[in-house]
Design a protein around this nucleic acid. Structure first.
Lengths: 161, 161
DNA sequence: GTGAGATTGTTGCGTGTGCAACAGTTGCAG
DNA sequence: CTGCAACTGTTGCACACGCAACAATCTCAC
């Protein structure tokens, strides 16, 4: 509740600060609600996102998963450890590269993910249904621009060539 | 909008999912960049946000800080512990409530915060300067709506009366 | 006034995550 | 072919955070 009304301060830094704080507060709320929903299935948001990635493309390498999740490789190792022990996923040696391993969903994991996906999407819809569809489409457009523009910044910082 | 169907899947759940993922990715990138900037001052994003809160209103209770930061009380206890040891802030007993403590910025903390604020705002401006000002104002409006609408959802879930 | 319940801050414990170091493997320059 | 650099995944370590339990204090109904 830091900014209850848009201030008309025209300086760029205040504007950026304002967007920043809004995004932060929104993220915190989304994350808390996610945890509540997913705890029904004994899943953390990370585990859920990882399963969803595996559902989209089976047999990805751990390092690919780490890149897509934007987390460290060791984190993926441990996430897969947990879920393999629960029988949700399975490691498979990559026949073409003996360093690498592919991760696939088991039947149990697939079933659990289906339920979690349904519950999560239902929850998301409820969370966003205060906004009408036109507004939501607008948000998607703008957020896409923002994400891509941030990506440009990150790349520029990482590789100043 | 009903006569011109968008190409993407128009179901509300997919739309919500899309917004969700965008917000998640944006947050991760913002957070990583924050850590990079603030590490120059030996500050984590949490410490920085806490200092900024103290700068706006001096002498807040720890529980107030926890509520505004959206973190657990124990987290604030430990953040203040660290920063008090570094001489950035100071605990002061609340004369009106012997359970409570007020937290104030020291001169050292105030100076450090000023530098960190400047660097952070500069960095934020760079990150967002790919978007023109009209667009940024638009984003602020929409994000404000979204945050408030999410708050309505959270309150409804917490207190279903 | 008194006692029960709420509130404030602290501490112990468990967990999630990044970083750095490591072994095993691959690939490429020479 | 050789040797060295890069890559893949794992592990140890450190740290940040939430939750639950706790003592001290306040509040309010009676």
């Amino acid at each position: 509740m830091s900014f209850n009304r848009p201030q008309l301060d025209p300086t760029p830094s205040a504007l950026a600060q304002h967007q920043y704080r809004l995004l932060h507060d929104i993220y915190i709320q989304l994350d808390a609600a996610d945890r509540a929903v997913l705890s029904q299935f004994d899943l953390t948001p990370s585990q859920y996102t990882l399963l969803a990635l595996l559902n989209r493309d089976e047999g990805q390498r751990l390092i690919t998963l780490a890149d897509r999740l934007l987390v460290a490789r060791s984190t993926v190792t441990r996430l897969i450890d947990q879920m393999e022990q629960r029988g949700l996923v399975q490691r498979v040696d990559d026949p073409e590269d003996r360093r690498a391993q592919r991760v696939i969903l088991t039947l149990v994991g697939d079933n659990l993910l289906r339920q979690a996906l349904a519950a999560h999407q239902e929850s998301l819809s409820q969370r966003f249904d205060q906004l009408d569809e036109t507004e939501q489409n607008h948000i998607v457009t703008i957020l896409t621009t923002m994400r891509d523009s941030l990506q440009v910044y990150v790349d520029r910082v990482k590789n100043p060539a």
